[in-house]
Design a protein around this nucleic acid. Structure first.
Lengths: 146, 146
DNA sequence: CAGGATCCCGCTAGATACTG
DNA sequence: CAGTATCTAGCGGGATCCTG
């Protein structure tokens, strides 16, 4: 039997995935990554956000748990831990434990996570950039319909 | 007093929005658009998905309610209607009622919606393209952690 | 055809308390 | 510091019935 490389098998399988189909695994994956905490965690680890003198763009970097917790204002420990675990399981972030005392845990994007971040960053920035336009649209809609 | 153009006001306001902040409106907007139904509706209206002989890329087009309902396999009327209303209110899609009998309703992307679609399409395609990789990662993680 | 209105269940986010 | 464990209220979301 002919041996397929991983890349070949992936190319083969890719055409079989369609998120429009209810039963397709990619539908569930899409659901997982369509999450505000995922978007914000990837953005944080990807180095987004206001940096002094650097106009909101930074390098991907490792961040500690508490650092993330502070950055994602309002996130509960539960959601942060839970989302990080899910991302780790899917291979989007790595979790590194350094046996200091107290223990130090850092999270970092994998290459796979970085590839998603490049897309997700756009979403977050879109939301911030078009906020006013959306607000205007809502006002107009509510006045027209409401 | 100096008059600001809409573009200037938007540029001014943009720097005030930060989805990392819990109270920022853009956080809620990010939450709204981080939704699998939003991703799939935009993808559908943007002309994504398998087209006979066209390798999954199509033109943006108007779609009827029932058409969308069929395309997004497994979506309930409630979620479809609800999501479409939200998108309409935010100015991402237009809703056009044609007084035939029975009535015909079509949805179409606005320019704003189209701009988001360009980003969202990437997410859906990412999920489909990297499904196998993620599946492998999960298997490895589950075996390692158990 | 394209929804509106209701009922209701399940899961999940959030708060709280505890720990290595 | 970086979580785990537990509990609960709330609502997301599906099912169902109805209508212009």
């Amino acid at each position: 039997m002919p041996t397929l490389t991983a890349a070949q098998k992936r190319a083969q399988a890719r055409s079989d995935y369609d998120a429009f189909l209810a039963g397709c695994p990619s539908r569930r994956l899409l659901d997982r990554i369509s999450d505000k905490w995922v978007a914000l965690i990837l953005a944080a680890l990807g180095g987004d956000g206001p940096h002094p003198g650097r106009d909101g763009v930074g390098e991907p970097r490792a961040m500690r748990y508490s650092e993330l917790s502070r950055r994602l204002a309002g996130v509960s420990q539960k959601m942060l831990t839970q989302t990080l675990r899910s991302l780790e399981r899917d291979g989007l972030v790595t979790r590194t434990v350094t046996p200091t005392v107290p223990v130090t845990v850092t999270y970092e994007l994998t290459d796979l996570g970085l590839s998603l971040h490049d897309l997700m960053r756009g979403i977050k920035e879109w939301a911030e950039a078009h906020m006013d336009e959306v607000l205007d649209n809502r006002e107009e809609y509510d006045g027209r319909v409401g």
